[in-house]
Simulated assay, not measured.
Amino acid sequence: MFKLIVNADDFGLHSMVNDGIIKGHTKGIITSTSLLASGSAFDEAVSMAQQYPKLGIGVHIALVGGIPPVSDPSEVPSLVTKDGVFVDNYIEFMKRIYSGHINYSEVSKEIEAQIQKIVDTGLRITHIDGHQHMHILPTILPIVIEKSLAHHIKAMRVPNEKINFLNGVHNPVRILGKTGLSAVASQAMPIARRNGIRFNQYFWGMINGGQLTETALIGILKKVSNYGGVHEIMTHPGSNNLELNHTYNWNYHWEEELSGLISDHVRRYITQHDIELVNYGDLL
């Protein structure tokens, strides 16, 4: 049994991201997406999601990424910069954690606000995950689980990509970051299980984050077809590299990811290897 969730992150971030995700769902293999409550194109994403009921909808908890919180910045000062937005990346956020600068009551307030905003749309929520995977940090995870259960969200991404899986990537910084986050994620699995939270057994796409070309995707699918169970592939499609990389300094290959996700070659591989495309809601 090979069950595969293909999840597109950052739904609601930008109109060009929304467009890429919907194209990847209607023309390709995307089965699931994660909605960013404070994204600038949130309302558009909600309207789109209402038209595609087979698209799983997750809560994409954000505590990083240079985007604004849902709460008023003055109410969550330990989480934002002087400009009233989250720090850019997980390294900066972890520095705040380890220096004692994070107020966890503010974390709880902001996570609740993000979940509630998405719940209020009336969309069926299938799971919860996190921008740059901050939801599985040891001090953040208990808050995420508490809030998830309070809102009857019973599935969560665990980004436990196999540490020795490099899939053509040789950047030491990326490898180090993936290794650390995967190790932390593996520790989250028994905690989620004890709390009755369903999660993926295998996770792919971290090492190729933002660079998930057709070739990289086929490399992952070869692993999927070797391990029975529930897999998630994380993706970041979009429809305009120039505009998106002008807005965000992440150097993602948004259009190339979309091209791989709608590739006939990729779909044939999935069909030929009896891989069943599902979303987190199908696990419950």
Results as ranks from 00 to 15, higher is better:
Val6His: 04
Asp10His: 10
Phe11Gln: 03
Leu13Gly: 00
Ser15Trp: 00
Ser15Glu: 12
Ile21Arg: 12
Ile21Leu: 07
Lys27Ser: 11
Ile29Asn: 00
Ile30Gln: 06
Ser32Gln: 06
Ser32Thr: 12
Leu35Pro: 08
Ser38Glu: 01
Ser40Trp: 01
Met48Glu: 08
Pro53Cys: 05
Lys54Thr: 14
Leu55Arg: 02
Leu55Ala: 08
Leu55Ser: 10
Ile57Thr: 09
Gly58Lys: 07
Ile61Met: 03
Gly65Cys: 02
Gly66Lys: 08
Gly66Glu: 07
Pro68Leu: 01
Pro69Lys: 03
Glu75Cys: 04
Ser78Tyr: 09
Leu79Phe: 04
Lys82Asp: 15
Asp83Arg: 06
Val87Thr: 06
Asn89Arg: 04
Met94Pro: 00
Lys95Ala: 11
His101Asp: 15
His101Gln: 14
Ser105Met: 12
Val107Trp: 10
Ser108Ala: 15
Ile111Phe: 11
Glu112Trp: 03
Ala113Pro: 03
Gln116Lys: 12
Asp120Leu: 03
Thr121Glu: 05
Leu123Arg: 07
Met134Val: 15
His135Gln: 10
Ile143Phe: 06
Glu146Leu: 03
Leu149Ile: 10
Ala150Val: 05
Val158Gln: 00
Lys162His: 10
Lys162Pro: 15
Lys162Leu: 13
Asn171Asp: 15
Arg174Thr: 15
Thr179Glu: 13
Ala183Ile: 10
Ala192Phe: 04
Arg193Lys: 14
Arg194Gln: 14
Trp204Val: 00
Ile207Lys: 02
Ala216Pro: 00
Gly219Ala: 05
Ile220Glu: 14
Lys223Gln: 14
Ser225Cys: 06
Ser225Leu: 03
Gly229Gln: 04
Ile233Pro: 01
Thr235Ala: 14
Ser239Trp: 02
Glu243Gln: 13
Leu244Trp: 04
Thr247Asn: 13
Thr247Ala: 15
Tyr248Arg: 08
Glu257Ile: 02
Ser259Trp: 01
Gly260Lys: 08
Val266Gln: 00
Ile275Leu: 04
Tyr280Cys: 06
Asp282Glu: 13
Asp282Thr: 09
Leu284Gln: 11
